[in-house]
Design a protein around this nucleic acid. Structure first.
Length: 555
RNA sequence: GUCCCAGUAGCUCAGCAGGAUAGAGCAACAGCCUUCUAAGCUGUGGGUCGCAGGUUCGAAUCCUGCCUGGGACGCCA
């Protein structure tokens, strides 16, 4: 807890004591004390609506209640400068913000650790994200999922959760057979032979690339194998190629995983049938029309779901249930799946499965990432995985740059559709918000460097010299960082981090324009300002790291 | 037909475990570089928070219905 949070806690407990002392409510009736930061400075540094909340309990007019509270308030603690009653009954607190200067040594000392908290209390959370089929290139939607997922992991870890990142490899279904057939067809074509693509084949350029490599390396050798052997070969080769490429692209995108979990392993280790049998023992399974059904309607699903088809093969749901059972068996307190919006209809049956396995529905949390629309030259770019003409993650990284992409994909709330404006993301201009933030960081680096060149060492500084309004605003913003991360973690809203670093950057730029940091005629004040700058730099860098954006020394 | 998401300034979006005069960026307009990077700053204008009810001292925020846009509703994955 930093000084700002301590300050707020002190204030809350003072308010509570005053309410009790005024006999307005008993301990049991006491509502949660809400402190907010008013938008208007005339309403003080903090305000509470407690008087309105108590109106019904105390059966008095809010303004009268507010007066009773203020009369009982111990104003000598908590740096309270003055207290006002305003509006319908708000109590406004004006604080002596000198206490904020204590933040600076804290931040300089904690460095990369600043912003951490134990909010999560070590809760074991597994986050599964991306999990794109290894049948082609990652596209725009995956890129958003990867950005949001990775940022969420970083944020939760920083807020004290024990996070495990996982990628589920769909390497067992029909799509992999199609992959093998597609590679085979392209291989034949590469050898100059007439061969049409399978009906649900993958038309991406990457498949053509695989085939050309194979044609070059093996010539017509592979045709000597039996059709079955060829299938197996193309399947394995294609899968390995696609997986390596996925991992490499994601790593370049600054997204890594603790575990890559193979669907095939569920088959190989015979995990699926036992999972179904477990549900059968619990009475959630029945046979009908030659198929095996899961009675998911017991848990609010629209209809029951088939687990084993008439032909004896599993539906997709079966390995998924086995997979989630496996996750739970690994001892996670909570599972978070990050899915594209097109899979949201799958949520009720998955929640049903979790409950049928004997867990609370909210043990599994599904975060839905809404669709991304790509705009170029003011026009919407149509995407199609079938024709392979979708814009890929790799192309975007080359064309747009990773920093801008990572920033853009988390800057909106995940449940809003995102319009990705290529021209804006590419533009090296002040229209591009990622530069605004990076520029703030680079500006500070320049100042620190120049101070160093002038021989100014701010190891010993007196933070209390920071008394200007702009400096105070900056420090206030710095103090919010830990709580912002905690809120972003609890609410699973990584976009709050982009908002925060944008706001902090705005404060920095404003400060920069209002005050000259390095003034050799006043070395003591200069040192204090340099320490503040370093604190801002650390906080900005920590924030950018959470969303996978680089913090440049210069621009 | 059922379900999910969205509808807030000209545009793109925050705000939504209820709070005071609803915010930001872009666009428009007016200013600020002999001074640490102007990729910056300062200011102005701009809103029936989709519509209609309801709950409340108080609703953009919660509830109900409706309208519009997007998506999902397979013994596909």
């Amino acid at each position: 807890m930093n000084v700002m949070q301590q300050m707020q806690e002190t204030l809350k407990s003072e308010i509570k004591q005053a309410v009790l002392a005024a006999e307005l409510a008993s301990e049991a009736e006491m509502p949660a004390i809400v402190l907010e930061q008013p938008k208007d400075k005339a309403h003080g540094d903090y305000a509470t609506n407690i008087a309105m909340q108590l109106a019904r309990i105390a059966k008095k007019a809010p303004r009268q209640i507010a007066e009773d509270i203020v009369a009982q308030l111990n104003q000598t603690t908590g740096s309270i400068k003055s207290v006002d009653i305003a509006g319908p009954g708000f109590i406004n607190f004006f604080i002596d913000n000198q206490y904020l200067t204590k933040l600076i040594p804290t931040i300089l000392e904690q460095k990369e650790e600043y912003g951490s908290s134990d909010t999560g209390k070590g809760e074991k959370i597994q986050i599964e994200f991306v999990s794109a089929n290894p049948t082609g290139d990652l596209h725009l939607g995956h890129a958003r999922g990867a950005s949001v997922g990775d940022s969420m992991c970083n944020i939760l870890a920083k807020a004290g959760y024990n996070v495990s990142r996982e990628y589920y490899i769909n390497d067992a279904g029909n799509q992999i057979n199609n992959l093998a057939l597609s590679v085979q067809a392209r291989y034949m074509q590469a050898l100059g032979k007439e061969q049409s693509m399978p009906e649900d084949g993958y038309h991406g350029a990457d498949i053509i690339g695989i085939a050309e490599t194979l044609a070059k390396e093996y010539g017509e050798q592979l045709l000597e194998k039996s059709d079955q052997e060829q299938q197996a070969f193309f399947r394995e080769y294609g899968l390995k190629f696609e997986l390596d490429k996925l991992a490499k692209d994601l790593e370049q995108f600054r997204v890594t995983f603790d575990h890559w979990f193979s669907e095939t392993s569920l088959y190989e280790e015979n995990k699926i049938t036992p999972a179904i049998e477990l549900l059968r023992e619990k009475g959630y399974i029945y046979e009908e029309d030659g198929a095996t059904w899961f009675r998911s309607t017991d848990f609010g699903d629209d209809k029951d779901r088939v687990l084993v088809k008439q032909d004896g093969s599993y539906t997709y749901l079966s390995p998924d249930i086995a997979y989630h059972k496996n996750k739970l068996d690994r001892g996670f307190d909570k599972l978070i799946n990050i899915w594209g919006a097109d899979h949201h209809g799958y949520i009720p049956r998955m929640h049903a499965a979790i409950q049928a396995l004997g867990y609370d529905a909210d043990t599994l949390e599904v975060e839905i990432i809404q669709m991304v629309n790509l705009f170029e030259n003011g026009e919407k770019v149509k995407m199609s995985k079938r024709t392979g003409k979708a814009v890929t993650l790799r192309e975007l990284m080359e064309e747009v740059g990773i920093d801008a992409m990572r920033y853009f994909f988390v800057m909106r709330s995940a449940d809003s559709h995102l319009d990705f404006d290529m021209d804006l993301a590419k533009s090296q201009s002040n229209d591009n918000p990622v530069y605004y933030v990076q520029y703030a960081h680079a500006r500070i680096c320049t100042m620190l460097k120049q101070a160093g060149e002038k021989g100014i060492d701010f190891a010993d500084y007196e933070a209390s010299l920071l008394q200007s309004e702009k400096a105070e605003e900056l420090m206030k913003k710095l103090g919010e960082f830990t709580q912002v991360i905690a809120d972003a973690a609890i609410n699973r809203t990584p976009h709050r981090i982009t908002q925060y670093i944008f706001d902090l950057s705005a404060n920095l730029h404003s400060f920069y324009n209002a005050e000259k940091v390095i003034n050799e005629d006043n070395v003591e004040a200069t040192k204090a300002r340099l320490a503040l700058m370093e604190a801002v730099r650390i906080t900005l860098a920590n924030g950018m790291k959470l969303i996978g954006v680089n913090a440049p020394q210069s621009m």
